[in-house]
Write a protein that binds this DNA or RNA. Structure first.
Length: 190
DNA sequence: AGTTCGATCGCCT
DNA sequence: GGCGATCGAACTG
C-alpha cells in the first residue's frame, strides 16, 4: 500500500523557493505510520521580506530549523491547542517553509477517526490543526528529516488538476500576497 | 518577570 | 459569523 503512492521525495525537491515548493506539493502524498493523505492546500512563508513568516524576526530557538537545510519538519504549537506542520524549503542558509493546510484522506482513515473523535471524512484533515491531530504529528517531530524518517512525502499520482492561488489565511501582515495554493474543486480544503 | 497575542478549532447563534 | 479556550514564544522593562 505504501509504495502505491510513488517514491519518496528527496532533498532537492525542497531546495527551491518556498512558493515553488508550495505549489509543487499539491497532489503529493504525506505519510506517517499507517496514515496517508493527498495534499490539497498549502501556504508558502518566505524567508526574506515576508512579515507574516515566523522567520521574519531572525533566528530564535524556535525558528532555527527554518534557516537550515531543506526537507525537515518545522512543527509549532499555536493558540495553546494546535500543532501545525511545515516543511522547510529553500537552500541551506535561506529561511522559508511551506505550511500544510489540508489533506484528502487516503489510508489509515479509521486511525484518523479515532484520533480526531470525528466520523465525517471531510472533518478529519481539512485544516492545519486537524491534520496533525489525525496523523499523530506533534512537536516531537520538530526537526524530523522527511527524506529518511517515518514521516515522509511521496510523489503521488499524476492526475491533472487546476490550482488556485489566494491570500493566506489568518495572518495580520503581508495579507495581500497570493501565497496560498489549493487544488480547485477539492472538497477537502479548509 | 510580566505581558501580549498568534500561520486555529469547534460550538453557539 | 462570532467568540472562548489555553499555552508558550518573544518582546519589554
Amino acid at each position: 500500500m505504501q509504495a502505491g503512492f510513488g517514491p519518496r521525495l528527496g532533498r532537492s525537491f525542497y531546495a527551491r523557493p518556498a512558493q515553488v515548493v508550495a505549489r509543487d506539493l499539491l497532489g503529493r502524498v504525506i505519510q506517517h505510520g499507517d496514515c496517508a493523505g493527498r495534499i490539497v492546500e498549502t501556504e508558502a512563508y518566505l524567508g526574506t521580506g515576508d512579515l507574516a513568516a515566523h522567520s521574519a524576526r531572525g533566528l530564535t530557538p524556535r525558528t532555527r530549523i527554518l534557516f537550515g537545510p531543506p526537507g525537515y519538519a518545522y512543527v509549532y504549537f499555536i493558540y495553546g491547542l494546535h500543532e501545525c506542520l511545515n516543511i522547510v524549503a529553500e537552500p541551506e542558509g535561506v529561511a522559508g517553509c511551506v505550511l500544510i493546510r489540508a489533506l484528502e484522506p487516503l489510508a489509515g482513515i479509521e486511525t484518523m477517526r479515532e484520533r480526531r473523535k470525528k466520523e465525517d471524512l471531510r472533518s478529519l484533515t481539512s485544516g492545519p490543526g486537524k491534520l496533525t491531530q489525525a496523523f499523530g504529528i506533534t512537536r516531537a517531530h520538530y526537526g524530523a528529516d522527511l527524506t529518511s524518517g517515518e514521516l515522509l512525502v511521496r510523489r503521488g499520482t499524476q492526475e491533472p488538476f487546476q490550482v488556485d492561488a489566494t491570500p493566506r489565511i489568518g495572518i495580520r501582515r503581508d495579507t495581500d500576497l497570493p501565497l496560498r495554493f489549493l487544488i480547485r474543486g477539492s472538497p477537502f480544503v479548509s
